[in-house]
């Protein structure tokens, strides 16, 4: 990592389109994200937010336009600059918590076996243990994921992703399957890590309130143009790009969202939740 001038966006989308054959999913996406931002992404199901995450992740490629990381085109496959935490299945069930966290370093140190032994292993274990302790899993290092609760598994997935010190961290509904109480703990953890490690985070969520609470910026994906005869003709865009960095900004953003009349994007219930959140 060479020195990057702070004015350069970490992620930049230029005239980004994604189409599957006739169906347009995303159209004319133009965005800039600065290092250290926490972007919450919301929108109705099927509005293209997961597609956008997949473009960032590298599992899908844009049909047209550019998606740049530090001014360079992204690799067309998942790579270590991009960490990911899915809602489920993002830890390895056949490894203990500690082994899960050590894996990234083992890959880096042993191209042939993907595994190290002896003193090298001890050193990696120590480093991984420190990370486990940071996410509050120090006591569970020798347990398998199946022995961990849902919240602990997500903590583990986050610890594992952070070992690579990714330029951007992608969270795909990371807390969607958790109980409300556990969710709250996880919110605390992710915010703490975001600030401590100065991460740049993209988080997809169904929960507008969660997006509001955690993010420093909120994107709402929705279709601007509709063709009733041919609904697949037009794709989604980012219809709202709201700063949330300060309390005042949050207030303004909430007011703006409450005037939205399109019920597919934000329901009345969510608007109500929102006024409670702010």
């Amino acid at each position: 990592m060479s020195e990057i001038p702070s004015i350069q966006p970490i992620i930049e989308a230029r005239q980004l389109w994604k189409e599957y054959g006739e169906q347009v999913v995303l159209e004319r996406i133009n965005l800039k994200v600065m290092p250290g931002e926490f972007v919450s992404i919301v929108g109705a199901s099927g509005c293209g937010k997961t597609t956008f995450l997949n473009l960032l992740l590298g599992t899908q490629q844009a049909t047209r336009g550019e998606l740049l990381l530090d001014g360079q085109a992204l690799d067309p496959e998942p790579s270590p600059e991009r960490g990911i935490v899915f809602q489920k299945y993002s830890v390895f069930p056949h490894m203990t918590a500690l082994e899960n966290v050590m894996l990234a370093d083992e890959f880096a140190q042993s191209a042939l076996f993907g595994r190290v032994w002896g003193s090298a292993r001890k050193a990696l274990g120590k480093k991984a243990m420190a990370m486990l302790e940071r996410v509050g899993l120090g006591h569970a290092a020798s347990r398998y994921p199946s022995e961990l609760s849902g919240g602990m598994q997500q903590r583990l997935a986050i610890a594992q992703a952070l070992m690579k010190q990714p330029r951007i961290l992608l969270l795909d509904e990371p807390f969607g399957a958790l109980d409300p109480g556990i969710r709250k703990d996880m919110h605390g953890l992710i915010q703490q890590l975001w600030q401590e490690q100065q991460l740049t985070i993209f988080m997809i969520t169904h929960d507008l309130q969660e997006g509001f609470k955690l993010g420093s910026r909120l994107w709402v994906f929705d279709k601007v143009r509709h063709d009733p005869q041919q609904p697949e003709r037009f794709g989604a865009q980012v219809t709202f790009d709201l700063p949330l960095a300060s309390e005042g900004a949050k207030q303004a953003a909430a007011e703006q969202l409450q005037q939205v009349s399109n019920p597919t994007t934000i329901s009345k219930e969510q608007q109500h939740d929102l006024s409670n959140a702010v």
Binding site: L57, T59, E77, P78, S79, P80, R82, G83, I84, F86, K88, Y89, S90, V91, F92, P93, H94, L103, A104, E106, F107, A108, A111, L112, F113, G114, R115, A157, Q160, A161, M163, K164, P166
Partner: peptide, 27 residues
């Protein structure tokens, strides 16, 4: 095997061989 695991391993820097050896074979 969940696609998520394979993607995760790639973001952890695994090449194809390492991924098969450490993630796929043991499972």
């Amino acid at each position: 095997l969940p696609e998520e695991q394979l993607i995760k391993a790639q973001t952890l820097g695994a090449n194809s061989w390492q991924l098969i050896l450490r993630v796929v074979l043991p499972q």
